[in-house]
Amino acid sequence: MTRTVFEKAIEAVGLVKRYGEVQALDGVDLEVEAGTVFGLLGPNGAGKSTTVRILTTLSRPDAGTVCVAGVDALRDPVGVRRAIGVVAQKHSADPDATARENLVLQAELYGLRDRSRVDELLERFGLQDAADRQAKTYSGGMMRRLDVAIGLIHTPKVLFLDEPTTGLDPEARADLWAEIERLAREERMTILLTTHYLEEADRLASQIAIVDRGRIVARGTPDELKAELRAEAPSDEPVSLNDVYLKHAGRAVAA
């Protein structure tokens, strides 16, 4: 079991990122408590993936500081890489390799030689029967499960899931939700999840930040965000996270 020795699993201050004329991030601050599930919500192009790329050391900010799992990501990116797992928006499994080969390569890249972890993950994600088939023959749900298994090979302290359920059918989505809840509860993993599905953030995340046009426009627990809206516009109708989202990022959705 992973023991966390840091209180803040993620601490990012003043992240700025520009691509030519486009201001992708315009001063993003994030704090994620260790052992919690954090939801980063926002419309497409709001800056969610850019934030994840910076937090996972794939990209560097033009300004700002990043600390992940107690390690300075700008000074010691390799130290951060050892501590984190990443499931990107795109499929990251090699389609020409089998699930087992994908997992073995991933284990070796972390210096792990023990193959029992590979078998364990194949079984946990229901891939043992397909383990020796090329990944390109898999269904969308199987491929996604393999992506997640790859991200978990070294039992990371902090797991990044970038729109993990986009494109999945309802059943596969429910399965993945259950797995995310299990990781947070049983393995006490810190999870940062980006999504544009509000019910996903509402169900899984204990803290939410809404990002729009490269800025955090709202943050709090799902209930706090709903209560805030109810106080502003009292009504007898139950408030959903959708209303909160529309209030803060509505302009961007419409644009």
Partner: peptide
């Protein structure tokens, strides 16, 4: 990108 976020 998956390969590059490993410490390899």
């Amino acid at each position: 990108d998956r390969l590059l976020v490993t410490p390899a």
